[in-house]
Design a binder for these strands. Structure first.
Lengths: 236, 236
DNA sequence: GAGTGGTCTAGACCACCAT
DNA sequence: TGGTGGTCTAGACCACTCG
């Protein structure tokens, strides 16, 4: 058994793109040229090219030709990532300052978000996170005590996601985010070292484990000049 | 000019799914039966079905048949939606005020985003969009003239996405969004009926057709008290 | 073995773009 | 006008599933 021809062609072109033989926005050989090169019917070439277009490697212009897509845009998108991973991938040095670490009793609003009962206990952590010593966000986390026995304050000096996945061995599945704009109040302005009423991104976040249980509810204030959200959406 | 046959077939089947004529996991007619029904070549049927598979409406089992996919998952999340669809789904009355409608020459920055060449022409549209007579966003659109011949200002008084999909018969695939926070400048404040320096959400957006070509670059300013972004992200 | 989808052919005509 | 991609035909053989 051997690979179908259209997959062979697909692979050849994909590799040429990934290896930089074809550069973004460069014209690739026409369907007719490829047909001669591979000695197949034109429909077979189109099958391969159509798949690559659907996968975001190419785009077509009727009457002009087929071009290599810009892959830069598609990176780093739609992944649940801890702040540590994210900022480190930009090559910045991270510091976390833990302002508060205490146990609280959950009210009705919080209990709904974390699938708890009012009266249950949760950890409350407040910290400021900086990249290259510039404050980027003020973060307020609520974590069900039942999921985080023996939680130590020290965890929040480094990557919480690393702790969750590699120490507790939880499997993180997905998160829901709501993103709004706000004017900084005095507390937020002070911790982010900006002026009162400067605009900030306000995000609320609930993250879920792969068994469907929410394990954190977070409210974060991001400095507008240090952070932005990127997302890819599909029509369907 | 009329719709290509494969699109007609696609639409028929998609509607049958959305109207519940075909239920999830139900077997649909075989390619041969559809070929006879529409009196076309089998490749044309396959073209239509392959598109529907890629769009998540169907799935195929070699040797068994083609089935309706389960659409429950992923609804309302991560969908590219025009503002009109979105606000109408909340039951609000929409009005659009078109401030500008003109042709401009694209500079280098814009040409990169729309895969054009500096010097090419683009439409520039500026409009304020309101729900129940409260301004929600100020929008600045750039559209390649080559994709929108005979574009009329009137289109922007109602749903642009409706025009794209049902008049021009383009297939919208996905979009890339960047979301930031800003303080409103005088122009933005005036159009959104807020105070200068009030925080707003600033979004840039590039939307792509299913052949991979970008067809719009948009910059929007959203009133912070009228709008927020919701997204679901996955780890992996 | 009969029916399904998967791959492929060798053409054709059309719509669009550049020159 | 010539070259590009877009649509379409009328077949063919293969791989898979099921009775």
């Amino acid at each position: 058994m051997q690979k179908p021809m259209y997959q062979v062609i697909e692979n050849d072109i994909k590799e040429a793109i990934l290896n930089g033989v074809y550069q973004p926005h460069q014209l690739i050989p026409s369907e007719n040229e490829l047909r001669e090169k591979y000695n197949v019917a034109r429909m077979t070439i189109r099958h391969a090219l159509t798949n690559l277009v659907n996968d975001g490697y190419l785009y077509r212009h009727q009457g002009k030709g087929t071009y290599v897509a810009d892959l830069k845009l598609e990176k780093n998108i739609l992944r649940v990532r801890g702040f540590t991973e994210e900022i480190q991938s930009l090559g910045k040095k991270i510091t976390n300052k833990v302002l508060r670490f205490e146990e609280v009793t959950v009210d009705e609003k919080l209990s709904e978000k974390l699938f708890l009962t009012p009266g249950d206990k949760a950890f409350y952590i407040e910290r400021v996170r900086s990249g290259n010593n510039i404050p980027v966000l003020l973060e307020k986390l609520y974590l069900p005590v039942r999921l985080f026995k023996n939680l130590k304050k020290e965890v929040f000096h480094s990557s919480f996601y690393d702790y969750i996945e590699n120490v507790l061995n939880y499997r993180v599945s997905h998160c829901m985010q709501i993103i709004e704009a706000r004017n900084a109040n005095a507390q937020v302005a002070k911790h982010l070292e900006i002026n009162k009423n400067d605009s900030v991104l306000f995000m609320t976040l609930i993250t879920y484990l792969s068994d469907g249980r929410p394990f954190e509810y977070v409210e974060s204030y991001y400095r507008a000049d240090q952070y932005r959200f990127i997302q890819k959406s599909f029509r369907g």
